[in-house]
Nucleic acid binder design. Structure first.
Length: 554
RNA sequence: GCGCCGGUAGUGUAGUGGUUAUCACUAUGGCUUGCCAAGCCAUAAACUCGGGUUCAAAUCCCGGCCGGCGCACCA
């Protein structure tokens, strides 16, 4: 047998044990769509819950939910319609692809002749309602939902920066040729946060909590010059200007903490900055968290972009909606100003039907623009006599100004994280000559938290085990009962799906109401009283206790 | 989207024109054992789809779909 590489072994396990499989298999499947089976869906759910712990609970960024189907206006404003619908043409000689340009006859790279033009649009397009009057697109990111709702969210947060909004949801991109399992899908789950900040405030009040965290950074400059990544603390990276400011540094550190919490290997994570030519149309700076995979090398799993005020400006313009936050000055600014007061009734009598336009033009003028005593209305220059216009000197206090917030956006590709986590957790080892496959998932991430196993399926051990299974379920643990085959076989079955603890009921259980807990990674066992089981499991899963300390080691 | 290669039970596979489609693992039921994939018996389970050639196709030819690799794409 030809040795399978790690990708193949992980996918084989994932399919066989119910984590992942291609969608629509009975109809021949379609590239870019994968189903999450019972264990995959559970694993993904725990990852999403951990993400919510980080962003919704710990950071206080409330979560919202907006439609996956969006109206055309949203993506016209965001630039996606323009930036996603391009006619492309490829050079027959060198294969280079270009946007179609009528002036283009030969390949600008090599002078070869060009092939036929083809359209590509990464957004799925459809129509809403009967009659196809309204064009709809499936969203390629969740972010626009947060921008479109900005005025509502701002009010919810009582008109004060900074604040953040989170959303987890399905997004859709009609990739030309998706490959590589769940690493590139046409429908996938993204978890995004839009953090709205005052553009003048780049600091983070809790920066000290993360400042000493070590990061592996691969800045844009290094990719061009030395091709080395570097180990550096968050604090040093910000001070040296490698990371632009504290806010960015804080959130990069947070991403790393999250990835480690769910169980990715620390030595297989780095942050790579986008180079100028690969940055998205909406962003001014972007870092990707990349995970090292066996077959595909460094793979993007999280992106953190500085979107600036691009999106809010765009939606403000297209929707004619104010998207600013009133930010007060420390001291109100007092200033004197001369304002123009048109004599409305006199102008009306003199200019009749042109009066309205003249008055409007006067009101939008500053006094210094009206020195000549003439007013420009369309192409016409109209002289105005002094009786038609008055000036008034006013004193006004300005308390603050409307600021368009800037946006920092961490964006997680959840499905990619699921695959990478499976790969990083996957281990094969040899125990007494037998191969043992084990998923070393953290206990709080593993889909099944405990296996309840009667040593024998008779002598009343099975009945006792069923009772224990039932009580664990009532306490909120996702457990599996298994009495099929030898105890060793059952341990191995659960090792393979990452179940962190196996609870075994033996003859001694019937005598003294104790049972054993076996730890997946060490294969050690402790004996604990039944009444302590629930509390012990809770501590072990939360990582609040050391295995050997919560029972008697056997 | 282009090019090359591939597609057989849940998994890994044998099978170059006529086989009851091979073997192993897994799974299910039973016997046995009784704390790390032991053994025995039984059972279940497959030729990617469509068309063509042929008396006869898993096998040869064409096309679709899916997968792998390379190019392009991945805002």
């Amino acid at each position: 047998m030809i040795a399978m590489d790690k990708y193949e072994r992980v996918i084989e396990l994932a399919k066989r044990r119910g984590f992942l499989w291609p969608s629509f298999e009975i109809y021949g499947s379609t590239a870019g769509f994968w189903d999450f089976g019972p264990l995959g869906a559970a694993l993904k759910r725990r990852i999403k819950e951990t993400w919510r712990d980080f962003y919704v609970i710990r950071e206080g960024f409330y979560e919202i939910e907006t439609p996956a189907m969006n109206i055309e206006e949203v993506f016209v404003a965001s630039g996606h319609v323009e930036n996603f619908t391009d006619l492309m043409v490829e050079c027959k000689k060198c294969g280079e692809a270009f946007k179609v340009d009528l002036a283009l006859e030969k390949c600008p790279e090599c002078g070869g002749s060009l092939g036929d033009a083809y359209a590509f649009n990464l957004m799925f397009k459809t129509s809403i309602g009967p009659g196809s009057k309204r064009i709809g697109y499936l969203r390629p990111e969740t972010a626009q939902g947060m921008f479109v709702d900005f005025h509502r969210i701002l009010r919810f947060y009582r008109d004060k920066l900074p604040f953040g909004v989170a959303q987890i949801g399905k997004v859709y991109r009609n990739e030309i040729s998706p490959r590589q399992g769940t690493l590139r899908l046409r429908e996938f789950t993204i978890a995004e946060v839009e953090i709205f900040i005052d553009p003048r405030m780049n600091e983070h009040p809790r920066f000290d909590e993360v400042k000493d965290i070590m990061l592996r950074l691969y800045p844009a400059k290094e990719q061009v010059i030395n091709k080395f990544d570097l180990e550096i603390s968050v604090k040093d990276a910000v001070e040296k200007g490698i990371i632009k400011h504290q806010l960015m540094g804080y959130h990069i550190a947070l991403i790393q903490q999250f990835l480690l919490k769910i169980g990715l290997s620390p030595e297989k994570i780095r942050f790579r900055q986008h180079k100028k030519d690969e940055i998205a149309h909406y962003a001014s700076d972007c870092w990707d968290a990349e995970a090292l995979t066996d077959r595909f090398g460094w793979t993007e799993i999280v992106g953190i972009a500085n979107r600036g005020d691009y999106d809010l400006k765009a939606h403000a313009k297209h929707s004619q909606t104010e998207m600013t936050v009133f930010t007060p000055y420390e001291q109100p600014i007092v200033r004197e100003r001369i304002i123009i007061k048109p004599n409305v009734s006199a102008i009306g009598r003199k200019f009749k039907d042109r009066a309205a336009k003249i008055i409007e033009a006067l009101r939008t003028l500053r006094p210094d623009q009206f020195k000549e005593g003439v007013i420009q209305v369309g192409a016409e220059t109209i002289p105005l006599t002094k009786d038609l216009v008055e000036y008034e000197r006013v004193q006004e206090e300005i308390y603050g100004e409307g600021v368009i917030p800037h946006v920092i956006e961490p964006s997680y590709g959840i499905d990619r994280i699921v695959y990478v986590l499976l790969e990083h957790s996957f281990e094969e080892e040899t125990i007494e000559g037998e191969k043992r496959v084990v998923l070393r998932l953290p206990p709080n991430i593993a889909p099944v938290q405990g296996a309840v196993l009667p040593l024998l399926s008779r002598d009343g051990l099975d009945k006792r085990a069923r009772e224990i299974e039932c009580s664990l379920r009532k306490s909120g643990f996702l457990v599996d009962y298994d009495e099929s085959g030898t105890i060793g076989r059952r341990y191995r079955r659960h090792d393979e799906i990452g179940t962190p603890f196996a609870i075994t009921i033996d003859h001694q259980t019937l005598e003294d109401d104790t049972l054993t807990i076996r730890e997946r990674d060490s294969m050690k066992q402790i004996r604990v009283p039944i009444e302590a089981l629930s509390g012990v499991m809770k501590k072990l899963i939360a990582g609040d206790a050391i295995f050997e300390n919560v029972g008697t080691l056997i």
